[in-house]
Amino acid sequence: MAASGRKKSTAGVAAARRPEVRLPPLVPYEGEGLEPDGDYDGLRFDGTDLTDASGRGARFLDCALESCALDRTELARARFIDSVLTGVRGVGTDLAEASLRDVEVVDARLGGVQLHGAVLERVVVRGGKIDYLNLRKARLKDVVFEGCVLSEPDFGDAHLVRVEFRDCVLKRADLSGVRLESVDLRAVAELDIARGVDRLAGAVISPPQLMELAPAFAAQIGVRVEP
C-alpha cells in the first residue's frame, strides 16, 4: 500500500491524502464468528454473518470484508489496516476506540455505528448510507466522505484534520465542541447542521452555503434579521 501525495485545492486548502489499498491474493475466511484479540491477515470475508460476533481488539491486515452482516458486532479497539469494507450492513456495530488506517469503506448500509474515541487516518467512505454515526471524541486525519448519506452524525468534541465531504449529504449534523483544521465542505450536496454552527472555524464553505447558513450565524451572535 502506498498513500497518494498530498495536493492543494484550488483555494489553497490542504487536500486529504487518500489511501491506495492494493490487496494481495486473499484466502477465503472459513471460520465462524470472530475471536477477541484475533489476528486476521490476508483474508476475504465474503458474505460472512458476523452478527453478535465478538472481535474486540482484533487486528485486520490486508483484508476484504464484502457484504458482511455486522449487526451488534463488537469490534471495540479493533484495528483495520490496508483493508477494504464493501457492502457491509448492520445496526449497532461497536467500533469504539477502533483504529482505521489506509481503509476504504464502500456502499455501507449501517445504523447506530459506535466510533466514539476512534482514530481514522487515510480513510475513504464512498457511497452508501450511515445513520446515527457516533464519532464523538474521535480523531480524523486525511478522511474523505464521498457520495454518501450521513444522517444525524455526531462529531461532538472530535478533531478533524484535512477532512473532505464531497457530493454527500449531511443531515442534522452535530458539531458541538468539534475542532476543524482544513475541513472542506464546499462540495457537500446538502449541508444541515443541527448543533455547533459556531464551531465551523477551520472549515471552508462556498458562497451559496454561507447564504444558507446566514440565519444560523445571525442567531448564534444574537442578531435579529427583520424586513
Rank of each mutant, 00 (worst) to 15 (best):
P36D: 14
V27S: 15
E20A: 13
T48A: 13
L34R: 05
D41S: 09
F45S: 03
D39Q: 10
D46S: 06
Y40R: 09
E20P: 03
F60E: 02
L34I: 09
G31I: 14
R17W: 03
A16W: 07
G57P: 08
D49I: 05
L43M: 10
A16T: 07
A69W: 01
G47N: 03
D39E: 09
P19S: 06
E20C: 10
P19T: 11
E32D: 14
S67W: 07
D41V: 08
G33L: 14
Y29V: 10
L26Q: 11
Y40W: 11
L34G: 12
G55A: 00
C68V: 00
E32S: 10
L65H: 00
P36V: 11
F60R: 02
F45T: 01
R22S: 12
P19N: 15
V27E: 15
R56P: 01
D46E: 15
A64V: 01
G42I: 02
R22Y: 09
A69H: 02
F45L: 14
L26K: 11
P25S: 14
E66L: 13
R44S: 07
E30L: 14
L65V: 02
V27C: 10
E30I: 12
C68I: 05
R56W: 00
L61T: 10
D46R: 12
T51W: 01
V27A: 14
D52R: 08
S67C: 03
P36Q: 13
F60C: 01
A16R: 11
R17Y: 05
T51A: 02
C68R: 03
R44H: 09
L26P: 04
Y29A: 08
P25A: 15
Y40G: 04
V21I: 11
T51D: 01
G42H: 07
E66G: 00
A64C: 02
F45Q: 03
G47R: 10
D49T: 05
C68H: 05
A58V: 04
P25F: 08
V21K: 04
R18S: 08
L61A: 04
P25H: 13
G33P: 00
E32V: 12
A16L: 09
